[in-house]
Every structure is written in C-alpha cells, then in structure tokens.
Amino acid sequence: MKNILIAGAASLALLAACNQGDDTAAQNASEAVNTTQDATAGVVGQTSAATLGANTVDGFVTSLAVGNMYEIEAARIAQTKASNADVKALASTILEDHTAAGEKLLSTASTAAPDVVLPTALDQRRKGMIDNLNAAAPDDFDRVYLDQQMAAHNETLTLLNGFSDNSDAPVLATLAQEMIPTITKHRDRAQVLVNGM
C-alpha cells in the first residue's frame, strides 16, 4: 500500500510539473518517479527471489541469469557516466566478476539444468532500472547507481541463500554458495560508498 501511495504521489508531482511548464520541476518530478520505480523494483525482486527463484531450478537459473545481465549492463553505463572514481572502480569490479559469473552459470546450467533455456534479454523490471540509470542527471547518477546496486545485490543474495541448500540440484546449490561472498562484497562496497556521500 505504501508503494502505491508513493508511486501515486510521484505521478501527481510529475503531472503538476508538466502542467506548470517548468523544466526544472518536471525533471525533479521525473527523478522522483524513477526513484520510486527503482524502490518498487527492489521490493518486487526480493519477493520474486525469495519465492519462485529460491524454490525451483528454472526460477533460480533464470533469475540469476537476468540479474547477472542487468549487473553487466549497469556496470558498463556506470563506467562512462559515474563521476566518482570509487564508483567507477566498483563498476569495473562488478563488470569483471559478473562476466565471470555469467560464464560459470552458463557452463554449470548446461550440465546441471540442460532443459532450462537461459534468457538472452532483460525483463521489463530491469529494463526500467537501466532506463532510470540512463535518465539520471549527472549530479545524481552515482547515487542512483549505488542505490540500484544495493537493491540488486540484496535480491541476488536472497536468491543465492534461498537456493544454496537445494538438494534437488546440488551442483547449482554449490554454485550459489560459491557466489555469496562476491555478491556480499559488492553490496557492502556500494553501501560504504553511499554512506560516504
């Protein structure tokens, strides 16, 4: 209910700003809508990771693959748009680690879950997050990226922790266990950088 009210308020702010013809107010309202959309995406992702993703092989592999694709695309954007050198360094680390994770997932899933078709494109939720990154004002980009990273990595940790003891797919469960420290490191680094802003 709270998210619906926030989304409604952000939408009204955008409408009011557009009616005023004030470009600054419209931009501020648009940023508020994007922030709300990202926050809602985080909640939806957490719920999805804790339910479907953590309980089925198909859900786990698909969720992990799409999340990994988002991380790679977001990191590439951050490498060009971030203004803080530490944020750019985090993006480089994330790009490297998630590229390796994607390769490991592909090879593991091909033998441990050969019937699961890995996605080749982002889902609508993550496309929206990428759109919000691309739309972020230069002064706001670093914060938007870091906020998204904390939410996305928390979602991935929920997914990995939920699947890490899956006895029906022990090879994938081992992969989940192996990924937890790296994902935790990314999330914690993003939090340190946000705290320093």
Rank of each mutant, 00 (worst) to 15 (best):
L118E: 13
T80L: 11
D22S: 05
A16Q: 11
I6D: 14
V116H: 02
S83K: 08
D131R: 13
M69S: 10
T36S: 10
V57K: 03
T56P: 07
A151V: 04
R143E: 02
S11I: 06
A91N: 02
A16T: 12
T62N: 11
A7H: 03
T56V: 04
V117S: 11
A50S: 11
I130M: 02
N3F: 07
K104M: 07
L193I: 04
T56F: 07
E73T: 15
A9R: 09
H98D: 02
G67H: 14
A75I: 00
T184N: 10
N55H: 13
N68Q: 03
L175A: 01
S63M: 08
N55K: 12
F60W: 02
M1S: 13
M69T: 09
A32S: 08
D139Q: 15
S110A: 15
P114T: 00
D86Y: 01
R126T: 15
H153F: 06
L118P: 14
T111L: 02
F163W: 03
D131Q: 15
I77V: 15
A78N: 00
M129E: 12
L118V: 15
A151E: 08
D23I: 14
T156C: 09
D23W: 05
V87D: 00
L52C: 05
L15R: 13
T56M: 06
E96M: 14
V43S: 05
N134M: 12
T40N: 09
T35C: 06
L52W: 08
A9K: 10
I94Q: 03
D38M: 09
Q79T: 05
R189A: 02
A50Q: 11
A49F: 09
E31V: 10
S83A: 11
A121P: 04
S92W: 02
K2Q: 12
S110D: 07
P138V: 11
T62D: 11
C18H: 05
A173K: 05
A176L: 06
Q79D: 00
P170F: 09
V116Q: 03
D139R: 14
D115T: 13
T99A: 14
H98L: 01
M1P: 10
M197A: 03
V192R: 00
A10N: 13
T51R: 08
E103L: 04
L160A: 12
T174Y: 05
S30L: 13
G53A: 15
L90D: 00
A135T: 13
L12D: 14
A49W: 08
